[in-house]
Each structure stands twice: as C-alpha cells, then as structure tokens.
C-alpha cells in the first residue's frame, strides 16, 4: 500500500502518512518509514489490542478530521472492509471497494475495481468529498523499494476509550491458520487443491509441492467442505481473493465462484484430468492429467532444479 501511496503522493506532491492503531505498535514505525511514510500517526492503548469496529471508528474519524487527508487507502482485508465503510458513512464520504488500480486523472483519484466477479471493470471517481477513499487489493500493487535510514515524523494521537460504553465485545479469538504456515493472502505463490485431490491424505501432494516452492496452500470450496483444509485456505467468492505471482490449481474445475478469487494472478497453471475444465480458459499453462501422478513428479523435478542452483522467484 505504501508503494502505491508513494506513487500517488509524488504525482500530487503531497505527504505520505501512515496510521497505526493498536497496542505495542511503535515497533512498526521503523518499517513504515523505510517503505516511504513521511508522517506516522499512532493511536496506542492496551484496549486497542483486538480490532473492534466500535472502538477503532471514532479514533480514525478523529484523525481524519484533524489531518484532512486528500486520499485514504485501506487494505481490502476483512478488517479493512469492515472499518472503511463504517468510517466513510460516519463522515459522509464516498468509498470504492476492492480496487485493483489507482491513478491520478485531472488531479483526482481514479479508482478501478472489478464488478460482476472479475468479468467487468469500472472506473470510479469521488467528485466532491475528501478524503477520497478506497479499499485496495494490496497484492495487486507494486511494493515500495525499502530505503534504510529514512525516519518519519511520529505523531501521537489522543485515545479516549470508555470501556463501559461498548456494545460489542470480542469474547474469543482463534487462528485456524497454523503458525509458521504461509497464509494465502501474503504468499507470492499459491498451490490450490480442489475436489479432484480426492482425500485429506492425498492433499500431502499439494503440501509437498508448496513446500518446495515456499508457497501457501489454497483450496476450493469443495475441498474445504470436505474438511481437507480449513476455511482460511478457501479461494473464491466466499473465501479470499488472491492475486499471487503464480497460482497452481490442482483438481479444480474453475467455476465462476472460484475464478473470481484468483483470476488476477500473474501466472496461472492448471492440472486437471478433464481437458474441457473451465479452469483451462484462464490458465497460462495447463497440464491434462491425473494430479496424483503429475504433482509428485513436478515436486521432484522442482526439487532437483532447486538443488541444481536455480532460484525459484
């Protein structure tokens, strides 16, 4: 996000500011300034440890009203898509969701977002209200080049929290993603398995391939439904939208609900025994064959290639 913000700010000759809300967050200031933030607003309090719409909204709206940004970007994560519309509506601001491209046109932010799955794109402007707000698929934007020894101005924002007035309380929080295992929304490479994988045991073929490529493991809804992978792995309309550099779909037919979640990937590789499977329509490379034979062979070949000194990008 900072990479994109930097590009827009340079064009408009404006500052790049970052906002952090939470507890024990000062440690993030360093990375943020390395990646280009000039100013960092921080709102820190123990009560801010867990994200809660009700607490974060007044803090963020106050920061917006005080500093009057021209553009305000959020990641299109579950938290971003919960907080951004709440803030936008509270301050009566226009907001575009899940953008994949941002440019400046006549001094205004032009936001491009997919609608109808990823079948159609729409260009959107926010003519009258400021800040211009967007949630963005962070993976779609170029990462900023880190610069050492940059230091941003850190501005502490007041936090007034009255715990007794909360109407919602987070009682329990569980991670279904396993620690140390890459999550699909941050990975550069994703290997996904579908119903065609056949069982929880055979999913190890997918996991082994992911291991060699330092990739995350994804799944279709059918595979999640079968209990082979947790919901956090689900790619698609009712799961996560991903856009990695490489997406390998194994035993996934490619229904529209799955495709909308991964069509934005740079390179798509599909392995499916049905040559008519719709996944092949979006694949850059397609292998027609049984994944139970193809995937282990591919793992083996890539392992050898890696040992031969090649680098998997």
């Amino acid at each position: 996000m900072l990479g994109k913000a930097k590009e827009l700010a340079n064009e408009l000759k404006q500052d790049i500011c970052a906002v952090i809300i939470g507890s024990e967050i000062r440690k993030f200031c360093n990375v943020l300034s390395t990646f280009g933030a000039n100013k960092i607003f921080i709102a820190e309090d123990d009560a801010l440890k867990e994200y809660n719409t009700e607490i974060y909204t007044p803090i963020l709206t106050r920061i917006i009203l005080k500093h009057k940004p021209n553009i305000l970007l959020f990641p299109a994560t579950k938290i971003g898509r919960d907080l951004a519309p709440r803030v936008a509506s509270t301050l009566k601001l226009g907001l575009a969701a899940d953008c994949i491209k941002l440019t400046i046109q006549n001094g205004k932010l032009l936001m491009t977002r997919p609608v109808y799955g990823d079948n159609i794109l729409a260009d959107i402007i926010c003519p009258n209200t400021r800040p211009q707000m967007a949630t963005i698929r962070a993976k779609m934007m170029e990462k900023a080049e880190p610069k050492q020894n940059e230091s941003a101005e850190v501005i502490k924002e007041p936090v007034n929290i009255n715990v007794d007035s909360f109407k919602t309380i987070v009682k329990e929080k569980k991670k279904t993603s396993i620690p140390g295992v890459k999550s699909i929304d941050e990975a550069d490479i994703i290997i996904s398995g579908g119903r065609g994988v056949g069982s929880k045991e055979t999913f190890k073929f997918i996991e082994e391939l992911a291991d060699v490529l330092n990739a995350a493991v994804g799944a279709s809804r059918a595979a999640v439904e079968a209990g082979w992978k947790p919901k956090s792995c689900q790619v698609g309309q009712s799961g996560t939208t991903v856009s990695p550099k490489i997406y390998i779909a194994c035993g996934i037919s490619g229904t529209t609900q799955h495709l909308v979640g991964m069509k934005g990937s740079d390179v798509i590789i599909a392995i499916n025994k049905d040559p008519e499977a719709p996944i092949f329509e979006v694949a850059n490379y397609g292998i027609v064959g049984d994944l139970k034979e193809v995937v282990p062979l591919l793992t083996k070949a890539l392992k050898e290639k890696k040992m031969g000194g090649y680098k998997i990008q």
Binding site: G94, L110, N119, A122, I124, I125, I268, A283, G286, E293
Partner: peptide, 25 residues
C-alpha cells in the same frame, strides 16, 4: 451518491494459454 462511475469495460483478455497433453513425466 458520493461516487461516480465514469466508465465500464472488459478487462484485457488473458493471453491464450498453452495446453500440455502428454504422459505425466
């Protein structure tokens, strides 16, 4: 409304892919 749609269009088509129909190895 606070936002305005200025244009709708099709995304650039994905390049036609290469199909490999061979023995697994």
């Amino acid at each position: 409304s606070l936002i305005q749609i200025t244009k709708v269009y099709y995304p650039p088509p994905r390049e036609k892919g290469i199909m490999i129909v061979e023995e697994p190895i």
